[in-house]
Design a protein around this nucleic acid. Structure first.
Length: 275
DNA sequence: CATTACCTGCAA
DNA sequence: TTGCAGGTAATG
C-alpha cells in the first residue's frame, strides 16, 4: 500500500505520540517472520528499555531512532499501518506487533497481508539500509540533472526504473502512474530516451504529485491509516490511476491499462507519447 | 526480461 | 471461483 507520502505521514503522525517515550514491553509478537533482523528472541530483549528519540522516514521505511544508536526500521509493504492506541483499546487479530510505551500508549503494527517487516538496526545496519536506496525525490539535492543521470543510457522501461528503489527512493505504482501522466510520457518508454525537457517535466511531475499527496495526508485505498488511525484524502485526487476506460482528463481519449513490471499501468494512449 | 512467491480479503 | 490489490525478493 504505502508509498513515500503515506510513509511520510505515518512517521510525522507518530512523532508527537512516541518521541521521548520508553518501550516498556513487547505486548504481542505473534508473526515472528516479520522480524528480519535480529532473531525474534534478540529483538524482544534488545528493544525493551529503549527510549524513542525520533520518528522519521527514509524511502518507504519508517525509522524510529532509539537510544544507544539503535534504530527500529519498519516497512509497511502492502497492507501495514502503524497507530498509537490507549491501554483500553483491544487489538484485532491482524495486529502482529504491539509495543507498550512508558506513557501508557501502545504502538500497533497492523498488517492484514503479513508482508510487513521490521528490523532492529545498529549504526552500520542503518548505513547499509540508506546506501541500498536511491536519492529522495523531495530532497533539494534531487535536481533534474540527478534524474537525467539516473535515466541516461538505460534501456529499461521508464516505469520499471521509477519503481526501482535502488535507483530512486519512495515511488510506487500509484505515484509512478500519476507522474508519467503529468509528464506526458508513455510508461513503456525506454528510460534513456527521456531527455532534455522531458526530464525537467518528469522531475517536476514527481515532486508535484508527491507533495500534493502529502498535503492530502496520503492515499487510503483499503488499509492505510495514519498514526491516529485516520484515512488520507489523496485517493480523491488521482488523475489516471485506476481510471481504465474513463476519459483522459486532459484530452478525453479513453485511459488504457497495461501490465508493466507485474503492475497495472494506467495511461492515456493519445497524450502520453514515446519521447 | 518475465514469472513466482509471500499473504489475506474483496469484488467481479 | 478467479483475479486483483499501495511491495519486494527470489527465481529462470
Amino acid at each position: 500500500m504505502p508509498e513515500l507520502p503515506e510513509v511520510e505521514i505515518a512517521a510525522r503522525s507518530l512523532a508527537p505520540q512516541v518521541e521521548g517515550r520508553v518501550v516498556v514491553a513487547v505486548e504481542r509478537l505473534d508473526w515472528e517472520r516479520m522480524v528480519e533482523t535480529p532473531d525474534a528472541a534478540s529483538f524482544r530483549l534488545l528493544i525493551v528499555g529503549r527510549q524513542i528519540q525520533c520518528a522519521h522516514r527514509r524511502a518507504k521505511w519508517v525509522l524510529l531512532d532509539l537510544d544507544d544508536a539503535w534504530t527500529l526500521a519498519i516497512h509497511l509493504r502492502m497492507s501495514g499501518n502503524l497507530t498509537v492506541q490507549r491501554p483500553e483499546v483491544e487489538a484485532r487479530h491482524h495486529v502482529h506487533l504491539i509495543l507498550q510505551l512508558s506513557d501508557g500508549g501502545r504502538i500497533f503494527f497492523d498488517d492484514e497481508r503479513k508482508f510487513g517487516r521490521v528490523r532492529l538496526l545498529d549504526r552500520s545496519g542503518l548505513a547499509h539500509l540508506d546506501a541500498c536506496h536511491g536519492p529522495e525525490p523531495l530532497d533539494a539535492r534531487f535536481t533534474p540533472e540527478v534524474l537525467a543521470g539516473i535515466l541516461a543510457g538505460r534501456q529499461t522501461k521508464i516505469k520499471s526504473l521509477l519503481l526501482d528503489q535502488h535507483r530512486i527512493a519512495g515511488l510506487g505504482n500509484i505515484y509512478v502512474n500519476e507522474s508519467l501522466w503529468h509528464a506526458r510520457l508513455h510508461p513503456s518508454l525506454p528510460a534513456g530516451r527521456v531527455a532534455g525537457q522531458s526530464v525537467v517535466d518528469l522531475h517536476a511531475a514527481m515532486r508535484q504529485v508527491l507533495e500534493q499527496a502529502i498535503a492530502h495526508e496520503g492515499s487510503s485505498l483499503r488499509n492505510y491509516r495514519n498514526g491516529y488511525g485516520r484515512r488520507g484524502q489523496n485517493q480523491e485526487h488521482f488523475l489516471v490511476y485506476d481510471r481504465a476506460g474513463q476519459p483522459c482528463l486532459r484530452c478525453g481519449c479513453p485511459i488504457e491499462r497495461l501490465v508493466i513490471a507485474q503492475r497495472s499501468s494506467f495511461y492515456c494512449p493519445a497524450c502520453q507519447i514515446w519521447g
